[in-house]
Design a protein around this nucleic acid. Structure first.
Lengths: 147, 147
DNA sequence: ATATTTCCTACTAATTTGATAGGAATAGTT
DNA sequence: AACTATTCCTATCAAATTAGTAGGAAATAT
């Protein structure tokens, strides 16, 4: 149904959490899981992908944990989602022409390609820093209106 | 993986085929299936959705078949995909807030919503007529370069 | 040494996806 | 009226994907 899987969705929240705690050194997965209300065991599966993409660093053992490999302003949501979900295109044929013999004359493929580019652009325009700012503003709003 | 299912992909091709044969009256599913190289039995499952969305008309019995309910220029790809895949949003929470208790303060949700709007805009800007034109140009190009 | 933490692999349950099958209802044709 | 062609409807099924659990090995600080 044209949906992100939990990989992309949880991954975005995980990285936002790391961005919020960017100045706190290494952050425990346990703590992220608790704050984000995501199963620690499942979230563990996301980390190798984020690490392979050069987005996070980790330290094992006591006092270990995870932290961003770059400043929040240097990491776009596109990198995060792409590292977890693969190519941001709505159809496989765009990125792997061999899956369909109609690629050379298929009009829908051209359109799927365009849609993928729009998705990429949108996600690329949002950095983790932007998201932290958005979060701060949300907190302020709820303080103003909900109390 | 942020992909359309075959419903959306096959549906787009089905509707393009109907648009190409818009002046030929009722078109046989059998013929569409043959031209598009899609299993007739499977494609049958797409038609009720397209009909419910008011995009096609059908006639049973001998001399029956399917045809567009409106001119190709009056049908956007968005309507087609949406009728088959449901809401064009990358996360369920955007359209069904009850699935997650974090919606009120979740930043990622705001972003998923924005991405969904971009996808909608892109698909809405393409009509079946546009796609027919694209197809014609492709045919011309292949005639020029491939022979 | 010991406690803590990441890291790695295997397994499993649930859901979704893609597809097939059989026949009922309908509309033209002879 | 009988016949043929077609849409329409429902049930079933296999394969793939997704989401999650479990157990323990490797590494690091104290």
């Amino acid at each position: 149904m044209m949906k992100l899987s939990t990989k992309g969705r949880y991954g975005a929240r995980l990285m936002l959490d790391l961005a919020i705690h960017y100045d706190d050194g290494f952050v425990l997965l346990k703590d992220i899981a608790k704050r984000q209300d995501i199963s620690e065991g499942y979230m563990e599966h996301l980390l190798p992908h984020l690490k392979a993409a050069g987005l996070i660093n980790s330290l094992r053992g006591a006092r270990g944990g995870y932290k961003l490999a770059k400043a929040p302003s240097e990491i776009s949501l596109k990198e995060v989602v792409q590292s977890l979900e693969g190519p941001l295109t709505p159809a496989e044929c765009v990125v792997a022409p061999s899956v369909c013999k109609r690629v050379s004359f298929c009009v829908t493929r051209d359109i799927w390609k365009e849609v993928g580019e729009k998705i990429s652009q949108t996600l690329e325009s949002v950095t983790l820093k932007d998201m932290v700012e958005m979060q701060k503003n949300k907190g302020k709003a709820s303080l103003t209106y909900n109390i």
